[in-house]
Design a binder for these strands. Sequence first.
DNA 1: GTTGCGACCAACCGATCGTGCTATTTTGCG
DNA 2: CGCAAAATAGCACGATCGGTTGGTCGCAAC
Lengths: 200, 200
Amino acid sequence: MGKGEHTRTQIIEHAITLARTVGLEGVSLGALAESAGLSKSGLFAHFKSKKALQVDVVEAAAEFFSAVVVRPALRQPRGESRLRALFDNYLRWIGSGAPSGCIFMSLNHEFDDRPGPVRDRLLQSQKDWRNTIKTVAQHACEAGYFHSDTDCDQFAFEFMGVSMAYDYTLKMLQNPQAESITIKAYDALLQRCVMPPDQV
Amino acid sequence: MGKGEHTRTQIIEHAITLARTVGLEGVSLGALAESAGLSKSGLFAHFKSKKALQVDVVEAAAEFFSAVVVRPALRQPRGESRLRALFDNYLRWIGSGAPSGCIFMSLNHEFDDRPGPVRDRLLQSQKDWRNTIKTVAQHACEAGYFHSDTDCDQFAFEFMGVSMAYDYTLKMLQNPQAESITIKAYDALLQRCVMPPDQV
DNA sequence: GTTGCGACCAACCGATCGTGCTATTTTGCG
DNA sequence: CGCAAAATAGCACGATCGGTTGGTCGCAAC
């Protein structure tokens, strides 16, 4: 990997950090250059345009998400433990970071009414994520952990709901009990889906 | 109401509309002036600063929310029907409008990491709303509709979760079944809280 | 009829925006 | 080392940003 590639990666990391607080549109090239320690034109040479930079940022964030949330969970055996890992990792993803919170939830709201390549890439990552949840839930059904008639689309929907409420309670309300409330909600959701032990 | 007041109200309405797609920071005074049919300076004369305008916008949105969601629900009798009305109105609030979606959910994500008067006002409205949900749920307990040991904070949390997932499924995923999925999720949440009929 | 005031506007300010074009420096290879 | 290529910086551009200034217009009170 050449030097340019390395710098480029660092730029994107700084962009992600800035975007967490001011949004992706709010990241100006001047501010980003200063944050990354380059001149504005030196930075700009790495990207074709600001829009392209934004797409690259979403791309990088999606890759990072997959690396720390999805792939580790997929290394767990199908069924309960994989589902558990998916939830644990996601909880950590949302709760950690500086500043904390899931960057995709912010970006989703920023771009849900802004058609274009950024929204398109964002939507793709969201569909992937949602599909992952759904598939993992289906495995839980096949493994006999969930009721076989569990609606896995519905499960994914409510799973996302709990996660969003967590992000909101953590970042906006700054409720220190956010995590424990979230775990309770998730447990309640699970309880509706799992087979009663005497039926296993 | 003088002419100035009327113009001012119209400006804020245009600002709310624009903010739905570009965010509140993204509403420039120039674009807002053009949208409202005034000169930039003519518009600016109505506000002390852009920040003050933003606070006024949040204020107006909160008032509107209260008028179309909260107050009509509070006219219903305590217990089941008031809770039902609260949910129905909120669902309509999220699903209607142009463009659709709850503007507070967007603003929350935009300002959750931006300390200042806008965030403060936003947080206040969120606490009010959350408190409304909680209180209405408590009334449902007192009326014997909910189990008396229902955790109403937990209920409010999960209620918000379902609502956020709705907003997301509607605006980002653009799933036409968003509403029916949401109603199912809400019913499941209710089912955990309501007294079984034979115990009533 | 003129005086006073609220509503509004054109022109402008310095700063910053994204984005080119042209050096200049730095890097990696022979 | 020397040298081409890659990486970065300097500089300038038109546009737009939030905000200011000075003033005009219509209307109501006197």
